[in-house]
Amino acid sequence: MSTATIPLAGRHYDGHHPLGSAATLMLGGTEAALIGTRIAQRYRLQELRVSPRIAGAARFVVLPDGGQFECADSAALDRLPQEGRSEGVVAWLEQRLAVAVAAVVVIVAAALGGYLYGIPAAAERLAPRIPMHTERVLGDQALAWLDGRGWFQRTQLDAGLQDQIRQGFGLLHSGLPLAAHYRREFRNAPELGANALALPGGAIVITDQMVGRAQSPEEVLAVLAHEIGHVELRHAMRHVLQDSAVAVAVSAVTSDAASLGVAVSGLPVVLAQARYSREFESEADAFAFRLLRRHGLSPHAFADLMERLQGPGPDHAQAYAFLSSHPVTAERVRRARAAAQ
């Protein structure tokens, strides 16, 4: 390194008045001199600290006497001790175009990989470690809410039919790892119509309307097998984990643009939730087909019931499939028929 003196033009701020004065910092090999209209001072280079480089903005040299010298960025400033070394590395990376291009590639890969594989895989491994009873409160609250708001009313199925379904349900889940947690609930739901749902904690609700649409006990069991799949595969917990992870990731990326509100941070979360939900439905279907066959029942029953619930005519849902929480019915029916072979 040569010891040539490099002059840097800038402004000096004494730290006592918010008024600067023009000054020049003469950088030598081991010493620096600051000469200006209101200052003339010598410093050793070791005593000085220069602020980290940021884009092409002006930088500040901190002087040992509490003063500061502001000047345009220059390679000569790299001679001085840097303030915050770790930032210097980042600043170096920020200046390289190749690094920026690589960063874009990594971000796209990490976002897609995390969304499609990473987050679902992590949730799948984590969920079984969280005890079932932590979900129980949520399920109880949800059921109490549905009951309280009149969505659900007391069942009107006759006792014989209830017993029959109960028995079949007991057979279906006996021997499964989470068998101890299952409870079945019958509810009359004139407004919700034919529906069945698995609540967090292992309660499975089937509506009178669903039982009414089924033409055989096998079809009812096929629906229950699907809901058992949701419980056994811990879909409620995985939903909570995956949705939270997506929300955290999206808010981390969009934190700069938070003022734009739901349009920016909400839409990706909604789309991700819909996708995860469709995956869970397909998983639960596949689980149900295996369970049915193990008990000598045919997945055809599932397909028949799905087709009846769908009704005749074209499936409009296809156009909005990416927004839907359930896979397209035709696809589910096709898989059920294939599983029955």
Binding site: V90, E94, V99, A100, A102, A103, A111, A252, V253, D256
Partner: peptide, 20 residues
């Protein structure tokens, strides 16, 4: 006096390191 081009580089590099 910031520009989108300058800030994009800072943003993308720091976001990438945050994710990694």
């Amino acid at each position: 006096e910031g520009t989108a081009g300058e800030y994009f580089r800072i943003w993308v590099v720091n976001l990438c390191l945050t994710l990694l």
